[in-house]
Nucleic acid binder design. Sequence first.
DNA 1: TTCGCGCATGTAAACGGTAACATTGACACA
DNA 2: TGTGTCAATGTTACCGTTTACATGCGCGAA
Lengths: 335, 335
Amino acid sequence: MTNIKKVSELAGVSTATVSRTLKSPDQVSQATREKVLEAVKAAGYRPNWLASSVKSGRSNTIVVLVPNLVNPFFMRIIGGIEQAAQEKGFSVLLGDTQGSPEREHEYASMVLTNRADGLIQLDHSFPFSAADADLAEDLPMVSVCERIASEKKYPVIELDNYAASRALAHHLLGYGHKHFAAIVGQISSQIYRERLAGIRSVLQEEQIPFEQAQITGGAYTIEAGIAGVEHLLSLPQRPTAIFCFNDDIAIGAVHAIKKAGLRVPEDISVVGFDNIKVSAFIDPPLTTVDQPAYDMGRRAVEVLVSQIRGEPLVRSKEVLPFQLIERESSGPAPL
Amino acid sequence: MTNIKKVSELAGVSTATVSRTLKSPDQVSQATREKVLEAVKAAGYRPNWLASSVKSGRSNTIVVLVPNLVNPFFMRIIGGIEQAAQEKGFSVLLGDTQGSPEREHEYASMVLTNRADGLIQLDHSFPFSAADADLAEDLPMVSVCERIASEKKYPVIELDNYAASRALAHHLLGYGHKHFAAIVGQISSQIYRERLAGIRSVLQEEQIPFEQAQITGGAYTIEAGIAGVEHLLSLPQRPTAIFCFNDDIAIGAVHAIKKAGLRVPEDISVVGFDNIKVSAFIDPPLTTVDQPAYDMGRRAVEVLVSQIRGEPLVRSKEVLPFQLIERESSGPAPL
DNA sequence: TTCGCGCATGTAAACGGTAACATTGACACA
DNA sequence: TGTGTCAATGTTACCGTTTACATGCGCGAA
């Protein structure tokens, strides 16, 4: 391993001069600078990142906790995280948790051991173990989409899920639908509550009933969408419009509806959430709510980095704009 | 920051004893061990990972270069990488390159600066900059799917693309197709050459022509699939079967074919590659080649870690099995 | 009783940088 | 000529661990 000492000997200067040449070249005379740079090149020297980090006490790394890597919506967020992190000189450690608390604990503890300076949580759980909880008190942590379940309020970058659900509901009401159902994702999350509340508020205003039996699901997967539709089609009153809490669920729902010999949207309208890439290209293209995933990731990094730098928190909650994307999976209610 | 010194003072022992208690407890008497562990708990001490890494010279980190985060096939590979890395005590740094050489250089250089111990490349380029190339000579690097373009042969975990393409070709020939086309992904890659060679070899055996005009594309995207079909439909002889070099392209192709008023597979059969999740649930479900993406990721880590440990290389090339998944996007050639 | 062995622990030198402080010398100015 | 200033460089302490080596002590064997 070529280290700074070898370079300093090669150049006939002290290690400090080598360090200065690389970190603050203007403090070094041009003559020695050239000498040193030549020695650096000759030795093939690259500064040891671990060593400088240990000195500075900062790893310039953030860890991102993702419940599911294959979800393209999360990946778009992570794309934004990556981009912003790189611009700010941070690198991104990937923490694929698969929803397992043990995994979350493990990744979260990286912030306690100086392996990372902060963490971004894409799920809604408080990621630290009970043993670490008190140490985690003032650590830089930001959540995206979901709010972290803890007394302390960590900053969150989110969507106005309530308003977005209301927009979807109004969209479907406009088509004359009267029988609604929902296939939800993770239960007990903030998203679950807000979206459901949004739907309920609109339906209540119109005096349209919306019972617990019409709410099914429990995971953000295609399979959950299929199972959800199978359940809903077995109900005495078949819904004519289904809210799916993400596009994966909606894709499964559309698939199952067609498989049952029904048509989308002629028999049942389906709306999703997230606007993942493929949603525009399935048959029929999905009506959905676009979330600015990339920007949410970017923003999360900006907030996190300012926390890491110890800057005061401006807002603990940022709500980014959604956009209702009307496509062909929703249409007039059947007569 | 609570460090080992604070703990040692609290426990009334030396820092060495604290370190030993945590790293090799059997060298410490039970009495002091308990004393130390209590002090650790009282101080809320967590060893500084940066410091131990600088000492050991190993970061126990690998960096993964991905051309495109939103591609679910890559994400399945990365899922396998993550899992295996965690089991082996490594963490994963994410390098979203977007195909940009500068980004690749930047991430690759992390291995030179001890920020990572090795790298996994999912693209086919040699990721180091020209300036770093000679230093990169003996660095642990493994590629998945694609072979790295360099004189030195780095280990690669791949699929038998030639045989898989032959299988797809035979599948379509069995349906009586005579007019083929291909929408390819990245040109100039190993995959491009092998898959095309596989297709060509089968068609040649059957004396079926396959001209350059029938080969289009250039990116692994839905849009490329759409553009590809638009081009192919403008040809004097319309193909009855299209090889798409991944499922995203195939999804775009199916979309465009339907949009043109044609049916899949009655008018045109479409086959893909990768077997991403959604392929089974679009209309019609895609015939495709399943790649064991997760296992490829796992295997890549195993090979990489053994390289990092300096173990001798067993095989420089591992070929994992594919599986032809016959679904409904392929069928009998139209009369 | 003395010697030697081995366990438990302490001391201090690493690891590879960075940066505060010290030193040197050139130069300007009185 | 003496003094002060400043730029360029060297010296050295330090970041937080780990670990080779040193020390001390108890105990069994001779």
